[in-house]
C-alpha cells in the first residue's frame, strides 16, 4: 500500500469518527425531547434526535443508522408509554450499549414524570392500536414541559455530577421563560373553553383537556385504523347535532376525510404540528407551541 492511499484511508476514518470530547452524548427518540434537553443541558451536552418531526411518531422506520447513534450514547431519553414500541426495541438490542439498555441508568422514560390520561381498564386490539399505559401524546400539553425538564435535569445531574450547577441554572432560566409563555398561551386559549372539536387521531387530547376544549370524535375509526365510510357517516350525524369549531389534523395522516367533512359542514380545518419540524414554523421548542396556539387561535 502506498503512502497516498494510507493517508486517504486515515483521513476518511478521521472524518467518519465523531469528535468525542467531554460532552455527554444524549440521544432522544423525538425532536421535542432534543429541544427540551438542549434547554436544560446547554453546551454541556451533545443532543441528537432519532426520529424526524414530520413523521408519524408511532411508525418511525427503524433505520440502521439509528443503531450507530445509540451505540455511542451516554443517555437515551424516550417518550415512553409505548409510543416507541414499534421501532426502538430491535435497535436497542442491536446497538447493545450497556449504558442505555433497558434497566440501565442512562435510559430515561419521560412518561414517568407526568400523569397519564386514558389508561385503559382492559386492553384488546379489537379497540385498535391502543396503548396500555395511556395516551402517549402527553407532551402536547405545554404545562407538561416543566416536569419533563425537571426529570431531564435530574438525570443529567446524576450522570454528569460536575455539571449540577449548570443544569440547575439552565432549568431555572427555562422555568422563568416557559412560565412567562404559559401565562400568555393560557390567556390566548381561554376563549376556546367549551369549544367542540374533532381530531384525526387522539394526538392533542392533553392540550384539549388542559384548556377545556371538548372532543366530539376522531376521524380515524380506532387508534391507528383508517376511517371507514360508515364511521364517517356516523361522525357526520353527530356533527349535525353539535356545533363543531375545528377539525384538528396532524401532518402525517391522510387528510382527505378531514377535508371532506370540513367542506361539507363548513368547519375550519386546522393542520397542527405534533413535534418540532412537523411544519416549517415549528423549528424549536418554543416555536412549536407558539405555532400550535397561533393556528388554534388563528391570529
Amino acid at each position: 500500500m502506498n503512502m497516498k492511499k494510507l493517508i486517504l484511508i486515515l483521513a476518511a476514518f478521521a472524518l467518519a469518527f465523531p469528535l468525542i470530547g467531554a460532552k455527554l452524548q444524549v440521544v432522544t427518540t423525538y425532536p421535542y425531547i432534543a429541544g427540551l434537553t438542549e434547554q436544560v443541558g446547554g453546551d454541556r451536552v451533545d443532543v441528537r434526535a432519532l426520529a424526524g418531526g414530520q413523521w408519524d411518531p408511532h411508525t418511525i422506520m427503524a433505520k440502521p443508522s439509528f443503531i450507530a447513534k445509540l451505540r455511542r450514547a451516554d443517555l437515551l431519553i424516550i417518550n415512553g408509554a409505548q409510543l416507541e414500541i414499534g421501532w426502538l426495541p430491535p435497535l436497542l438490542n442491536q446497538a447493545s450499549n450497556p449504558k442505555v439498555n433497558v434497566g440501565a441508568r442512562g435510559l430515561l422514560d419521560l412518561s414517568r414524570s407526568v400523569k397519564m390520561l386514558d389508561v385503559p381498564d382492559n386492553v384488546s386490539r379489537a379497540h385498535g392500536d391502543i396503548h396500555p399505559d395511556g395516551n402517549p401524546h402527553y407532551y402536547l400539553d405545554p404545562h407538561n414541559m416543566l416536569p419533563l425538564a425537571e426529570a431531564i435535569a435530574a438525570k443529567l445531574s446524576e450522570l454528569d455530577g460536575t455539571g449540577v450547577q449548570a443544569y440547575r441554572k439552565n432549568l431555572a432560566d427555562f422555568r422563568v421563560q416557559w412560565n412567562a409563555k404559559l401565562e400568555e398561551w393560557d390567556r390566548r386559549l381561554a376563549d376556546l373553553k367549551g369549544a367542540m372539536v374533532i381530531e384525526y387521531h387522539q394526538n392533542y387530547d392533553y392540550l384539549l383537556r388542559r384548556y377545556g376544549i371538548e372532543l366530539l370524535g376522531t376521524i380515524e375509526l380506532l387508534p391507528g385504523i383508517p376511517p371507514t365510510s360508515r364511521h364517517i357517516q356516523e361522525l357526520e350525524a353527530k356533527i349535525d347535532n353539535a356545533s363543531v369549531r375545528f377539525i384538528l389534523q396532524d401532518v402525517y395522516n391522510p387528510d382527505e376525510a378531514s377535508r371532506h367533512i370540513a367542506t361539507k359542514h363548513h368547519i375550519r380545518l386546522i393542520k397542527l404540528p405534533h413535534d418540532i419540524g412537523a411544519v416549517r414554523e415549528a423549528d424549536g421548542l418554543f416555536s412549536l407551541f407558539e405555532e400550535i396556539i397561533r393556528r388554534l387561535t388563528h391570529d
Binding site: 465523531p18 450507530a68 446497538a95 447493545s96
Partner: peptide
Amino acid sequence: WVAPLNIFLQ
C-alpha cells in the same frame, strides 16, 4: 461489533 462511527458499520 458495531463500529463507533456516524454511519452504521457492523
